[in-house]
Design a protein around this nucleic acid. Structure first.
Lengths: 238, 238
DNA sequence: GTTAAATATGGAACATCATTCCAGAGATAT
DNA sequence: ATATCTCTGGAATGATGTTCCATATTTAAC
């Protein structure tokens, strides 16, 4: 069963058939159910927890049955990611100025990736495909509304998109790094800060001074500050 | 043999002994030689090509011998990444204004990640560790030289760092995606553009209009444009 | 209503990977 | 000379993504 990302992937005919044959299993296997179960596993056990064994256990089936509905693991991750991004990107827009919408959109994405760290890597894995395109489109519409110079439009959207996804991914990596070592956030930051402060001041003056700030800093606030820097730069050019 | 990233990892005593026992193998195995061979494999066959089998074949030894010098694959990737970043970050600074140094630094990193796509993911994998700290320090010093408001300094450095690494990673993912499908860059962009232009204009007006620009755009120029947006925003605040 | 094809299932098998184990070789220290 | 440490490399382990296939169920054709 082949599909294009994010676009309705089952024809109406197939859908009807599947509904009628629901008795084959108590709950018939379907792409939706597989993605749903994948998201549950990803949220509870992280990216490493999603194996075809764990997945077929949860769905009480074998790996072969899953492969009937899904091409491979990469596609599964992208689809799971898209299912969540599709909701995230649906942020109220009514009558807000473009810059406010961009801020809201960015924060919404930040919070979502924070809640589902595995999304970060999934987003990078599938360039030009649905989940990223959803974000691209929303940002693009708002940048257009800002009436930036024509030749600045595309680079600006690219930069924002890359920044948002980039920070999200980094946050995800931090979370994963922390989880893998059975630490919490402050313990993780503490250990990094300790390492930094032991560096040679001659070579790493800035990093050493940053060790303290690192422990106090607020990821979300820093993220927003970066967005604001972008927006300020854009305003100056317009 | 345990080590802290990037800091000299063999005591002088051990080093001496190893030099003396070079006859054990024609070329004695060492952390350096392993990292060197890893970089060669990574550059020629990409991240998926670096397996312990391929590595021990190239070094004509077994996996066990490698594990005597290296803790695990993740550490190996970080070390290989650091070996390259250490050179990359060493960009001439003499008498250039801070903004110019930042631009040079950013472009140097962009080009390096472009030449060694595997660096992109390696950078994200090890938050707070050596390769990233090298970049953090260089950017931090330049932002300091810009005399930004104190509370803006850290967020600005964070944003720049995340942007640079984020774009680098995305570029790497594109390259990997392209390579995995045996395409070249323009073929890849072409297929994405084709997909985009088949979207529903009602929902994706911006993306559809971007399909053409996508094929013509220059990654490096767009990257630099993003850097400039940042710098402009910073200038406005100072 | 019977039959042939299509759809769907799940368990076994396969190839590959990172990693561990271990028997032993070479060098050093006593 | 003997015991200890350093280092090697091949074999074994366990887990993974993916493929294969025998089988069951449903649909389409006659």
């Amino acid at each position: 069963m082949s599909t294009w990302n994010g676009v309705p992937y089952v024809s109406q005919k197939v859908m009807d058939k599947r509904t009628r044959t629901a008795q084959r299993r108590r709950e018939s296997l379907s792409r939706e159910r597989i993605i749903e179960a994948s998201i549950e596993i990803l949220d509870s056990d992280g990216e490493v927890g999603l194996t075809f064994r764990a997945l077929s256990d949860r769905l009480t089936t074998g790996p072969g049955a899953i492969y009937w509905h899904i091409d491979n693991k990469s596609e599964l991750l992208t689809a799971a990611c898209d299912a969540i991004i599709a909701c995230t990107v649906d942020v109220p827009v009514v009558g807000m100025p473009p810059e406010a919408v961009i801020r809201a959109l960015a924060l919404s994405l930040f919070d979502t990736i924070d809640a589902h760290p595995w999304i970060g890597s999934a987003l990078t894995r599938s360039p030009g495909q649905m989940p990223v395109v959803r974000i691209l489109e929303r940002i693009g519409q708002q940048i257009r509304a800002l009436h930036v110079a024509d030749e600045e439009e595309w680079p600006a959207v690219c930069a924002l998109l890359n920044y948002i996804v980039g920070v999200g991914r980094q946050n995800a990596a931090n979370a994963q790094f922390t989880r893998a070592r059975d630490l919490d956030r402050s313990a993780f930051l503490g250990s990094v800060a300790r390492t930094w402060s032991q560096l040679d001041r001659k070579d790493y003056p800035f990093t050493i001074d940053s060790a303290d700030r690192l422990q106090l800093h607020d990821d979300r606030a820093d993220f927003l500050a970066g967005i604001n820097l972008f927006l300020r730069g854009l305003r100056l050019s317009a």
